[in-house]
Amino acid sequence: MLDFLKRFAGNRGAVIGALLLVVTLLLAIFSPMLYPQSPWAIAQRPFLEPFTTEGYLMGTDTLGRNVASGLAHGAYISLLIGLISTLVSLAIGIPLGACAGYFGGWVDDILMRVTEFFQVIPTFAFAVVLVAILQPSLTSIITAIALVSWPPVARLLRGEVLALKSREFIEAAQLSGQSSTTIILRQIMPNTLSPVVVMSSMMIATAILTESALSFMGLGDPEIMSWGYMVGAGRTVIRQAWWISFFPGLAILLTVLAFNLIGEGLNDALNPRLRKRG
């Protein structure tokens, strides 16, 4: 563990990424205390420029809402969307991929056909369709992102399991009469952890980007103040008021960057041999 931390800390990018993430996390946790008023509240006159009025560090938007408050409250939402959608896609992708890889044969064939099915539909287009059909809401956005992002997880797991299956310790376990479930859960899964962790951090980043893109297409949840919503709503006044979409855009960029850097750092630290993945 210590060794891992040392290796991780040795990667400059990873440390920067971790710091950025910590800031975002703090922002998400303390937003209700920093900005107790609802981020939707019309608090000042519209189009207040940033750095000019106390309490309105990042200015106000087209309706006079505090951009900084929206940014703080949005941190929570964006992280939530990233995390939950990634967890859901792991929950789908890992068992599917593991079974396909372990059992092989017709099980593999069917499961891979299902995976292929989701992979041949263009990802973003499919997400757009899903959100439109389910009608935009936090749940439908998370569901859509999760549904389109699990196939790579399944493929990764299948590959890992295939590689592990022929190793001695698995064969030994099989010979000692352990059940398939036990072998998969006890012997195989722990060994696939590191690539999965690396992939997850990248997936969180992609999920945050996807949410903002959905918002741009007019498919955001109107009840939640997310960064994607803020960029989407501010983009039409970009010529008059750059700050409305700039700050949330920057927040997305930095957070996505953070998760990518962390992912790379984890990759190097957890398993130098696996560096080629990512």
Partner: peptide, 10 residues
């Protein structure tokens, strides 16, 4: 990485 992390439409 910057190209990747910047929202495409922006």
């Amino acid at each position: 990485l910057l190209f990747y992390a910047t929202p495409l439409f922006w």
